[in-house]
Design a protein around this nucleic acid. Structure first.
Ligand code: NAD
Ligand code: NAD
Lengths: 225, 225
DNA sequence: AGGTCTTTGTGAACGTGCGCACAAAGTCGC
DNA sequence: GCGACTTTGTGCGCACGTTCACAAAGACCT
């Protein structure tokens, strides 16, 4: 049954999370006209160790040539296929505030196989506006959008509305959600939610800053035992 | 020497990454006037299992009361202290484009102990503008800012400028950087870089979408063996 | 064609993180 | 004051991820 012993079924999550970075590095190399790259070079460009890179790539098959390295275009195509980027995916952004507008105006997705097909808001003052060449639609249009094959929903509403919007997306049949609101979303098992949180990142940085400060000049605020 | 056997030295990274979420859940509870919470309840509000939550909290000491739970305010204070949020940290945002402006306008940091002290851009047409009540400064001002105790740098410039900006920040003495540009930054060991990447998140979602699609209707595009 | 040299792919050791399950500890009712 | 009940804190085993180190595989030179 398992026809391909090397790869099939089950690429580790940690590996999947790094594939986009490899893909970006490969695109950059291709743009410089470089056709072949070693694991050492690609790893450096991706910010990982070469052993890790090789093990990651081994999960999707044997596309390298020993003594030479990897063909840039071939490897990029292979990673794209594995990530499911060969077929374009449509994205809707819900919440046309500061962040939602910035995302809508961002051209970085489009080149990567993501197409923003809809912008949504519930504020009547915003609905009908044109942002980045797209007319903002009302929340009720979500069901219609899903029927048209919406693949991913991006939530950029305030936290108190996020669960509501999430529920609408799920009901409409969306199985992949990217959440920018600082809250946890409850979803059925079959739905995939990823969260991006600014404050969390800053707080993690703050922790390491403090740790460094404590390590260098220890015992500054210790007054009494 | 190691006075406190329970906690001191070495909170796992995975735990640190979850502490901000616990803190947010606690803030929410405090806002509802709730003074005490069990690990089960707090875990549910944070989107984790209660055993994981308890183990995480055990790394910073014993602040729970058996048979009762945790004091909301006490625990929040303790986590804040551990994360180094008791002392305010100043943040500079470099790159006043779509994303940089959205971040500057965002009020979510301020309440968490982060203070945006400077906005920076290298475009003469942008320098001098007022964004979110702050005057945009030139890139050369970075050194002066660092001298004033700048703690964290946020990079929201295009990718091709990110390394340059990063180098300026490092030279100026900044040891914590949050990077939104889609590229890897080279920094000395003592500098901490975290990256937030939209496209990566979407690509990971796409991978799981594809996997689900393959699992349900298998062998759709298999034509010949 | 044979030898050398480079680089891949991977087995094995190691470290980290996670979940279960339970004993210890403290509360609350009586 | 005592017993039953609740909830914490943690020891243990397992799964996952990372790193090392090397044998196998192929390119390139002569
Ligand atoms: N702006 C940032 O830099 C930033 C950073 C980190 C996190 N966030 C988070 O991202 C979210 C959006 O931030 P923002 O600054 O853009 O906020 P914002 O207030 O500028 O925009 C929110 C938008 O969502 C719309 N909205 C509200 N409820 C809605 C609903 N039920 N359905 C559809 N649309 C609805 C509002 O009309 C508004 O246009 C917030 O949750 C915020 O915490 C923002
Ligand atoms: N906008 C988004 O939603 C989004 C999403 C994901 C990632 N990003 C990334 O974030 C970055 C910024 O995105 P954006 O949409 O705001 O771009 P943008 O082009 O709107 O803004 C970039 C800003 O950086 C300034 N800048 C350029 N070089 C600089 C330098 N050397 N020093 C200081 N300032 C400099 C420019 O003057 C400009 O104001 C990009 O790297 C982009 O890939 C953006």
């Amino acid at each position: 049954m398992t026809a391909d012993p090397a790869a099939r079924r089950g690429i580790p999550d940690a590996t999947v999370a790094r594939l986009p970075e490899y893909l970006r590095a490969l695109s950059s190399l291709a743009g410089q006209g470089i056709g072949s790259v070693s694991s050492e070079e690609l790893a450096a460009a991706s910010g990982v160790r070469s052993a890790k890179l090789r093990k990651d790539l081994s999960h999707l098959g044997s596309y390298g040539v020993r003594g030479v390295g990897y063909d840039v275009d071939l490897l990029a195509a292979e990673i794209s296929r594995e990530l499911g980027l060969t077929q374009d995916r449509s994205v809707a952004i819900i919440g046309m505030g500061n962040l939602g507008r910035a995302l809508a105006a961002y051209s970085g997705f489009v080149t990567k196989g993501f197409r923003i097909v809809a912008l949504v808001d519930d504020d009547p003052a915003v609905v009908g506006d044109t942002v980045a060449g797209i007319t903002v639609r009302a929340l009720d249009d979500l069901d219609r959008l899903a029927a048209e094959g919406l693949s991913i929903g991006v939530i950029t509403t305030p936290a108190h509305s996020a669960q509501l919007v999430c529920d609408r997306l799920v009901t409409a049949g969306v199985h992949a959600i990217l959440n920018f609101a600082p809250c946890v979303l409850a979803v059925p098992d079959e739905v995939d939610v990823r969260k991006v949180d600014l404050s969390t990142e800053l707080q993690i940085l703050a922790f390491h800053e403090q740790r460094k400060a404590l390590a260098s000049g220890l015992g500054l605020e210790e007054v009494a035992p």
